[in-house]
Amino acid sequence: MIDLIIASVLTMLTAATPLVFAATGELICEKSGVLNLGVEGMMLVGAVFGFAVASFTGSALIGLLSALLAGMLAALIFAVLTLIFLSNQVATGLALTIFGTGLSALVGFDYVGKTIDRLGQIYIPVLSDLPLLGKLLFGNDLLVYLGFVMLLLTDRFLKKTRWGMILQAVGDSDVSAHALGYPVVLIRFGAVLYGGMMAGLAGGYLSLVYTPLWAEQMTAGRGWIALALVVFASWQPWRVLVGAILFGGITIVQLNAQAFGLGIPASFLNMLPYLATIVVLVLISKDATRIRLNAPACLGKPFRAAR
C-alpha cells in the first residue's frame, strides 16, 4: 500500500512538472502584458528538437538544451510579429501553435517510434535508500526538483527584485512604464523569449524524460492546460503548483482506474484532464472581480510608443 502511494506521488510529480515549466514561463510572459497562446506549439517544437538532437548526439542533456533553444526561437517569431509588427496576439498565438504542430511533425517524421537513452535519473545513495521518505524526496528525476526551484525563483523574482517590479509595471501600465523611461518593447521581448524557453523545456521534458519518445502532437493539449493554469493561479506562482499537482493527481486516477479495471472506458478516463480544465476555469472565472484585480491590466494589448 505504502509503495503504491509513493509510486503515485512520484507519478503525480512527473506529470505535474511539464505543466509547472510551461505555466511559470507563460506567467512571466503574461505579467509583462503579452498573451502568448502558442504554448502548445512551442512545447511541440521543443519536444521534437530536443528528441532529434538527443538522438543525433546521444546526449539527452544536449537534447534538453536544444529544446530550450528551439522553444525560444519559436517564441522569437511571436515576439517579432506582436511587438514589432503589432499583430493581434490571439491570432498570432494560434498561428504559432499551428506552425509548431506542422514544423514538429515535419522534423519528427524520421524519429517516430525511435528510442533514446532517457535523461538520467539521479540516485543519491544514502538518502534515496531511507525508508519511506527517501524515495519520495530524493528519488525523482533532476528536473522535478528544477520545477520547484523555478517556482521559488519566479515567486522571488516577481515579489522581491527590482526587475520583477519593472516587469509587472510594464504589464500593468505600459504607457506609464514608458514615460518612466523603461524600454517596454525590449522587456516584453525578454519575457516572451523566456516563456518560449520554458515551454521548450516542458516539451523537452516530455520527449526526453517523461515518455521518452517522439510522437506527433504528443503534448496532447498540455500547452493549453498550462495556459488555463495561469488563469487558475490568478498569476501567482505558488498557485501554479496547486493546479499542476491537481492535474498530476488526475493522471494517477486515470492510471489506477485503468489498472484496476473499473469498467470505465479508457476514452472517458482520457477526457478527465480536459474536463477538469473546463471545471477549473468555470470555478475560477465565476469571480470576475478577482480575475480583473489579478490579471495584468495591459494583457493582450499592443503597445506603440507615441513620440
Binding site: 506549439g41 517569431i77 510579429l81 503589432l86 499583430s87 491570432a91 506542422g102 517524421f109
Partner: peptide, 26 residues
C-alpha cells in the same frame, strides 16, 4: 515529402499575413 509540410505552410502563411496586416492599420 511528409504531409506535415502542408501544416507548416498553413502556419507560415498566417504569420506572413499577420505581419503584412501592419500595412492595413499603419
Amino acid at each position: 515529402l511528409p504531409k506535415a509540410v502542408t501544416g507548416l505552410f498553413q502556419g507560415i502563411i498566417l504569420f506572413y499575413l499577420l505581419a503584412f496586416d501592419l500595412l492595413t492599420h499603419y
